[in-house]
Design a protein around this nucleic acid. Structure first.
Lengths: 209, 209
DNA sequence: GTCTATACAGTGATAGAC
DNA sequence: GTCTATCACTGTATAGAC
């Protein structure tokens, strides 16, 4: 079959393979899922799968790449910070961290990729780098800049901006991980969301000047 | 060979298998390590390994059990709390959380088991339970009781004790995980330790009354 | 308790017909 | 782009000699 033959076509085979891989890898881990499992889930033969990816590893690499791309777009550019900080008071601005949290955890593909990266982090240097650099590093750098400006504007007490960034963000990450574990747990989301809210409120009440 | 034949005997074969399993599982993950790999690392044949464990899974179960047992002994009993809180001021007491951190991260077997449990948490309900109940749940309950008493004694501002427990502990866990990723990184320990210290100092300065 | 030998299902991947 | 067929290899586990 030619790729995407009609205008009403659903997802391409390649996309269906990636969806199945997200699903299975996030449940069992990369190593425990075989190419046969993947092919069966998609409804094609193993050999057909190799028409879309040259190896099992390349599927994982593609998942990483998509996850990275999604992360890039989730933080506003630093250039836009001044305008945003003028527009919103610190509470409102930091509360938007909660909306970012909600936005991420309610996107199944993101949470599946999050699980996969966390599972593979110890054995796969690429996963490790995504986690340490792209997620932890990037977010903390961004927030550090936010706090630097909030302190300069006299809206936050003069603590070390990097310390503030870590104190604000690490509990959020920990709660995202806790939510990722409970993905199948219906009431998990509401409870975790409420705890993120509590954290943000507590944090703001302590550091505002 | 009879078990532990002489008084100068080193570790038993069973212990050597467990050590090799901690090593390999923590690096590559349970699924990616084969019984052949384990036997080779110990220096015996696969078939000999089955004289000590009835299955590969039983090795993992034993690692979990040992990890659990180690955790049980790492928190003081609640019964001893009043005496400890009388003896130490809040700063000193909470600083001891740092010593617990140091004690854990400097024990390779604990950090290897920590890695394994984190790797397997998404696919293995037992790992999940250890993490959510034994580690997160137990520690937070303990600290909740600590803060309840510190508040009652007028030494800490009257926030929700459970919120305080989470705010104190989650960054510590996040930093332990970050340290676990960098296990092989020589300078990682010093940097992470310093950040744990900074977190504790920051936290105490904000909540003390 | 360790070994050799073996069973046998599952693994990632390829060749070549359609 | 999918299929059938097949490959060499690795997976966990067992039987039985020493």
């Amino acid at each position: 079959m030619a790729p995407r033959p009609t205008s009403t076509a659903g997802p391409s085979t390649k996309e269906r393979i990636l969806a199945a891989a997200l699903d299975l890898f996030s449940q069992r881990g990369y190593t425990a899922v075989s190419v046969r499992d993947l092919a069966r889930a998609v409804g094609i033969k193993e050999s057909s799968l190799y028409n879309h990816f040259s190896s099992k590893e390349e599927i994982l690499t593609t998942i990483y790449a998509n996850f990275r791309a999604g992360l890039q777009s989730s933080l506003p550019p630093v250039a836009a910070l001044d305008r945003l900080l003028e527009k919103y008071d610190p509470e409102t601005f930091l509360q938007q961290g909660f909306q970012l949290f909600q936005q991420n955890v309610s996107n199944p593909a993101i949470m599946q990729a999050w699980r996969i990266v966390h599972m593979e982090q110890y054995r796969d240097p690429v996963a490790q780098e995504i986690l340490l650099t792209e997620i932890y590093g990037r977010t903390v750098s961004f927030l550090e800049e936010v706090f630097r400006r909030l302190i300069a504007a006299g809206r936050v007490r003069p603590f070390d901006p990097q310390l503030l960034a870590v104190e604000y963000q690490y509990p959020v990450f920990a709660l995202m991980t806790e939510y990722a574990i409970r993905l199948t747990d219906e009431q998990g989301l509401a409870e975790v969301e409420q705890r993120v809210q509590a954290h943000i409120a507590f944090f703001i009440s302590l550091v505002r000047s």
